[in-house]
Design a protein around this nucleic acid. Sequence first.
DNA 1: TATTGTTATACTCTATAACTATA
DNA 2: TATAGTTATAGAGTATAACAATA
Lengths: 152, 152
Amino acid sequence: MLPVPGLDYGLLDGLLGYALRRAQNALYLDFYRATAEWDISPPRFAALVLIARNPGLRQGLLGQAMGLHRSGALRLTDWLNAQGWVERRDAPDDARSWGLHLTPAGKRLLAKLEAAVAEHDRALVRALGDQGPALQTALERLARVATAAPIN
Amino acid sequence: MLPVPGLDYGLLDGLLGYALRRAQNALYLDFYRATAEWDISPPRFAALVLIARNPGLRQGLLGQAMGLHRSGALRLTDWLNAQGWVERRDAPDDARSWGLHLTPAGKRLLAKLEAAVAEHDRALVRALGDQGPALQTALERLARVATAAPIN
DNA sequence: TATTGTTATACTCTATAACTATA
DNA sequence: TATAGTTATAGAGTATAACAATA
């Protein structure tokens, strides 16, 4: 998605939103390179981390954290479960809910994934030099600002 | 996708890639709010701008600019054509190719869209205050760095 | 032989709506 | 009556593979 020489991008060139889109596209490609040996994606990775750090997490809360509808959290959980990485156990306090947990295989996988993803991210921040930390701060601010203050 | 209080995000909290994802998610929602009266999306909007600024643009080059496969550029063009916003004309120099052009209706639509999107983007930059311009520069750098230097 | 666009197909991500079981 | 999860379905976005026409 890098700029094609000779093409006029008009308004797009000045838009913060378009710069963000380009950056995210590039990072997606990088993420897939860094995790090529597993059948993983950014949402799948995020779900594994969240379940690992919050054992017994309910499906609905996983969806909320990831900005997904209930049905999306269901499909994601189904897939992770089919891979043998996540299991559903009865939630102790609510018979309607599941508590999600990593399986031993899921924990082993996540350890490798986290190492690969963290290294990948550190290399990016290094490549950005002194702009790296400021970028992260500004992005977090942007996420809050955009969500909190719908413009139109 | 904002942080859920009480939830442990582990590694995710420190990742540049995750901050980027949160920011993009928020901007997507904002984009849809800003363009709610038309059935538009960021890729559709970008395609309209590119075709408007580069009349006679071939489908393949549109795909390249947007990071799409040929078949994706085809579907996108089909859709814009079905809305009556884009038309395919024979390319003068290559009988295999189409030259893409906006219709009068497409031009009228784009004028309104550009106004809405530009206003939305300006409001975002304003909300970021003095971090705004630096963020855009850093994002453009990030897109180049990530694409140019695959990490793993 | 390579390229442009097309067709057919499929998978991921995500949503809506209607449903069941439980609170 | 509201909530958690499920089922069925659909649509956007994107890909691969095989194909026709043209270069």
